[in-house]
């Protein structure tokens, strides 16, 4: 049983999962994040389950993106950022001195808010990760990885004849799927997605959502989104954040149909956001 710390208003109640489906791939325990003097994330406990999509929702500035970036230590590069608490991957702390952050990021991939392909060819974009991790070198082995990653990202049909074109020449939606292909090319265990559709048009968004649903089961996925319908459509678990606190966590259908907390209900019904 996981318990979030109590705040003055209400207890956070985490419903007890049935044992056979509750398999935390990653687990955050009592995580605090400080940005200089700002306390951005406050004592948050959050599991990311194997084979499921976990949605992190909440109003802007509630700390959900900040927390997401803790899962593969992307905040390391920000000098003013300080993380306390514990995050584990398969039971092992990701802050362990033995764990190389580079290796961690190979296992926990990330897709960003704005599509950010490298200004290199489509092929090199996908091949970059496998190359630096020594998964494959040049030749047919690498070709196969690139093809299968693009296939899984649903992009293969569109780009198979223009692999040598620059990744930045693709459309916005294609760029974002290229970034997803790039992330899955190193065969990660977890994929973190930070508002992956916020810069895309509705059609491209639909494609990405479809893709997320297909990828589910193969990877543990955590997605930060502003769009509640999106969270309802793609996720199995939902965590609602407000002002840096985890207000409520549970099955997506429970959160959307029968939230326990008043703040969750207000947000979902559009009272604020």
């Amino acid at each position: 049983m996981l318990l979030a710390p109590s705040d003055s208003e209400a207890e956070v109640i985490v419903p007890e999962p049935s044992t056979e489906e509750f398999r935390p791939k990653m687990n955050a325990t009592a995580v605090d994040v400080y940005y200089g003097d700002t306390h951005a994330v406050k004592k948050v406990d959050l599991p990311i389950l194997e084979g499921d999509v976990t949605a992190l929702i909440g109003p802007s500035g509630c700390g959900k993106s900040t927390l997401l970036r803790c899962f593969n230590r992307m905040n390391d590069a920000i000098a003013a950022c300080r993380v306390e608490g514990e995050i584990t991957l398969e039971g092992r702390s990701i802050f362990d001195a033995e764990i190389d952050v580079v290796e961690l990021r190979a296992r926990v991939g990330m897709v960003f808010q704005k599509p950010n392909p490298f200004p290199k060819s489509v092929y090199d974009n996908v091949a970059y990760g496998p190359r630096i991790h020594g998964i494959a070198r040049k030749g047919p082995e690498m070709d196969a990885i690139v093809a299968s990653s693009l296939e899984r990202a649903g992009l293969w049909q569109e780009v198979k004849d223009r692999l040598q074109e620059s990744g930045t020449a693709l459309s916005g939606g294609q760029q974002q799927r290229l970034c997803i292909a790039r992330a899955i090319a190193v065969d990660p265990e977890v994929i973190l997605m930070d508002e992956p559709c916020s810069a895309l048009d509705p059609i491209a968004t639909a494609k990405i959502e479809e893709l997320i649903c297909e990828l589910r089961g193969r990877f543990a996925i955590a997605i930060v989104t502003h769009n509640m319908q999106q969270a309802a459509r793609v996720s199995q678990r939902t965590a609602f954040f407000h002002l840096g606190e985890l207000v409520e966590y549970g099955r997506t259908e429970d959160i959307f149909t029968n939230p326990v907390q008043e703040r969750t209900r207000d947000y979902i019904t559009g009272r604020y956001g």
């Binding site: 590069a77 580079v102 960003f112 704005k114 950010n116 490298f118 200004p119 970059y128 090319a185």
Partner: peptide
């Protein structure tokens, strides 16, 4: 060089020096 390029490279697990050598310096 836009920071998003650095993030992208770090996101797939490039070390800080690899980020610089493979992406920042060429650009």
């Amino acid at each position: 060089v836009p920071p998003s390029i650095r993030e992208a490279a770090r996101g797939v697990g490039a070390s800080p020096l690899q980020v610089v050598a493979h992406h920042v310096l060429p650009l």
